[in-house]
Design a protein around this nucleic acid. Structure first.
Lengths: 290, 290
DNA sequence: CGGCGTACCTAGTAAAACTACATCAATCCG
DNA sequence: CGGATTGATGTAGTTTTACTAGGTACGCCG
């Protein structure tokens, strides 16, 4: 039993197809093959069209749909359309050397969007809620991460106005450790590492915690880092098995920061929001002159 | 004539609906209302069902579909399903103060994904292709941007290995200007500004260009910045009219950087890719010890 | 070699989508 | 103010589509 219980929307159909293709009958497999090879055609085609293209009869197409658990061909088509809206899953369409630039653009965007979709499904709302409460109760925020994770911290630093407390994102591991060492119970430390195994970041989390600070951890999976955090946030993305596929974890991390910042700002109430609006307008005027 | 010629997939249907709802006939408007209020129902319903629920006749539903430019009800339903897969567009579902955390998470993710989808539609592949060629022909890359746009540059800097040339992303406007002033014809400057009106960034682009360097511009819309660039890249996102909606432009910018980096790396050939693989493996070992 | 069961197709049916036409209402001009 | 004309909407009919029931061929085991 996989740990994949996608609550909001339907399961990634094309992936599922690959899993069950072995259990299907011979003719149904022809249909499955057609769907995998040419999903766009199937989406727009009629049952008869699919039957002919796959070289089978209409009832076989029908059985194929019911075998997958759909009520009928229509439902299947709707579901397929939904899957295709996010693009063909990147796991199926790896990036090749001779891809045209249009194809590359599509694939990278699709991969990113599919990954974000997955991140959403796996993100635990209860943990996010606890993180928001912790931030609201805090007097300062410190972000710790290296490489791409450092970038997430820098982004959060720019959102300090939304958070409503001083934010710092030291880039140097030593500085991060120093901040953790001098942390006070009202401080919140957000430790970020996609692998969750970057030693210095784990060390920062441990140290901050012994000082009584609240530690929020962000990681791509259950990991040593999260074990040493008060509030673990799992930001799961589609794994980059291939060098060709770009790192998407930082994007999901940025979105989570967006969520935290937005939630915190909203809970701080109307006064806070008014100040933000004023700030945004001021920034617009400022921008014209610099 | 609007500048909406979405090449790859269908238009953001529900948004489009709001635009044209005024031009529809009275009964058709009832259908539009139903679609807006209860899109999920319409997606799964039959024509007769929709007609009854909207309190109109079937041909009216049909006319509604054709008025929107669809061949028929089926096509409309497919298109609606696609739109719904990305979630209800954030422009329709603004974030409210009393939203539960689950709702907030969904909305922010949806908003982000919808925006990325839009960015993809508007991105010009030919311009990307030219940018890739320019980078391959260059001896160094410099990124210039402020605020969130600076972050995009920093991310690109981390991808220097993929680009295969020295990358720098000075954070200070003065440093950026200095880099532009001393730029040589073989250098590529990437000027980033979502508004495309940040004066210092525009100045950097101008200066670099007079020195004969190739200037790539990234902006959310056609703007003064792009006018002063050799290669304009429009990275369009859903506009943030509301303070509640987080800035998504930086995410789209990051994805575009991903695309550029990936394309460049692929074109550099096998040797380059092998080096990258070796680097990645080395980084994994390095990470365990730090 | 013969019966049984599965896999698949042929043919038929019900229902859905789509079309042609008629009616009603509103508007504009005499 | 009344009649005509245009255009919006519903009624009824036609075609296409999805779905179902039954039958045939093929493989497998006794």
């Amino acid at each position: 039993m996989k740990p994949e219980a996608y609550p909001p929307t339907n399961a990634p159909l094309l992936e599922h197809l690959n899993d069950v293709i072995g259990t299907l009958r011979a003719s149904e497999r022809k249909v499955a093959q057609l769907v995998a090879d040419n999903p766009t055609f199937v989406m727009n085609a009629t049952m008869a069209g699919v039957a002919e293209a796959a070289g089978v009869s209409e009832p076989t197409v029908m059985r194929f749909c019911t075998s997958l658990g759909f009520a009928g061909f229509q439902q299947f088509k709707i579901s397929l359309a939904q899957t295709l809206a996010l693009g063909i899953p990147a796991t199926l369409s790896t990036i090749g050397r001779d891809d045209a630039i249009e194809v590359l653009i599509t694939k990278v965007f699709d991969h990113t969007m599919s990954s974000l979709d997955r991140a959403r499904r796996f993100l635990d709302p209860a943990a996010v809620d606890r993180a928001v409460n912790a931030i609201i109760a805090s007097t300062s925020l410190t972000f710790a991460g290296l490489g791409a994770s450092a970038l997430i911290g820098l982004d959060a630093e720019q959102k300090a106005a939304l958070f409503g407390v001083p934010c710092s994102a030291p880039s140097d591991p030593h500085q991060q450790f120093m901040a953790a060492s001098t942390a006070r119970p009202t401080d919140v430390i957000i430790a970020i590492s996609n692998t969750g195994r970057t030693k210095s970041v784990v060390q920062v989390a441990k140290t901050a915690r012994t000082n009584g600070a609240t530690v929020i951890g962000m990681s791509g999976e259950d990991s040593p880092l999260l074990a040493h955090c008060d509030i673990p946030l799992v930001v799961k993305t589609i794994e980059d098995t291939d060098i060709h596929t770009p790192t998407v974890s930082r994007l999901a991390g940025l979105v989570v920061i967006d969520i935290l910042a937005t939630a915190v700002a909203l809970r701080r109430g109307k006064d806070h929001m008014d100040k933000l609006t004023a700030m945004k307008e001021g920034l617009l005027r400022f921008r014209r002159d610099d």
